[in-house]
Write a protein that binds this DNA or RNA. Structure first.
Lengths: 189, 189
DNA sequence: GTCTATAAGCAGATAGAC
DNA sequence: GTCTATCTGCTTATAGAC
């Protein structure tokens, strides 16, 4: 691969990294192409050499954001936390704040509903991967795979965090996250 | 009260009814003041005689949307469904579509996170009312009140519907809603 | 209170120089 | 590939006639 192509790939990844963080924290409509490019150290005009539209960038940024947090939920990754560690990290007040990492499934849930199929496809793929990871945890723990149970766990994690982020009451948010944790940590959910 | 004031109140309610439906279905940024006023049979200029800003309208519309669906979750309302009826209605594919009624807690979850305190206060109040209603159902069924359990139920209902609306796969959405229903209907959740 | 007209600003996308 | 400049269209909010 020529040096130019290598450089273009690096630039594209830099744009995606900025977009993944900014979009997850602020949503599609509050972030302009200008904001993303500025964050990546470029100007607006250079954007269309890498992506054909804002929606395409958004769709790809969802995958990027998911991968950067997904490593922490993958039981096959030796550095990944245990299932109990995942619960604690995912349902933490730090995750609610979103400064360290941001699961796009919880940060962008209803934002996705307003977008085109390109974006919704990306979100759906990430959700399926999330459930699949919970299946793997289940096999590790119980030796059995129960996808219905994994979907319930996914809803408790994603939904709990999304609601905790929406409500304007830190104490209630803490209680809510702790309730979700309790529902998942106890064997008899 | 003079006729003029009575008329103004009616007009205000008409605007709120339109806003509650349009905002819940499309989110804050996809609906303009023009859309709301047109739907209410008025023009843009008349808006500021009733509300001081778009955000104020949005906050009030969340309360309106919640009340119009909340009647169906209130056990003290004789026309309200049973707890099992609530589960079935709330977690239905019809609710996912949003043509009949739209719970703002599930339709606007991450949308709220981007707004000012005025809006987030309204959402928080509605959420507390939702949990309170689940508490009442619990007392009716078991004779005991368990707010932690009610919050878990709220997350399963709101989160399940919100995710089902985001994903672009009808079959998966059906399985997801059915999984949430199963988690809540079984005594050993 | 409601209307039309308009102010003032911002966004996505494109054109053309380098 | 990246830049600056610009086109085009949209939005919230206000001014002033009726």
């Amino acid at each position: 691969m020529a040096w130019n192509n290598e450089h273009k790939k690096k630039t594209r990844e830099k744009i995606l990294t900025s977009a993944a963080r900014l979009f997850a924290q602020n949503g599609f409509d509050h972030i302009g192409i200008n904001d993303v490019m500025k964050d990546a150290g470029l100007t607006r005009g250079a954007f269309y050499a890498h992506f054909s539209s804002k929606a395409e960038l958004y769709a790809e940024s969802i995958i990027t954001a998911a991968m950067s947090t997904g490593r922490k939920t993958d039981p096959l990754n030796p550095e990944a936390p245990s299932f109990d560690g995942l619960l604690k990290t995912y349902l933490s007040m730090e995750h609610r704040q979103g400064n360290l990492f941001r699961c796009p499934l919880a940060f962008l849930t209803t934002d996705i509903t307003q977008r085109d199929d390109q974006v919704r496809d990306a979100y759906t793929r990430v959700f399926k991967g999330f459930v699949n990871n919970l299946d793997k945890h289940s096999v590790q723990q119980n030796g059995t795979k129960d996808t219905i149970r994994s979907m319930q766990q996914a809803v408790m994690l994603i939904g709990g965090l999304a609601i905790a982020r929406a409500i304007n009451d830190d104490e209630l948010a803490k209680e809510l996250l702790s309730s979700c944790h309790a529902a998942l940590a106890t064997p008899t959910i």
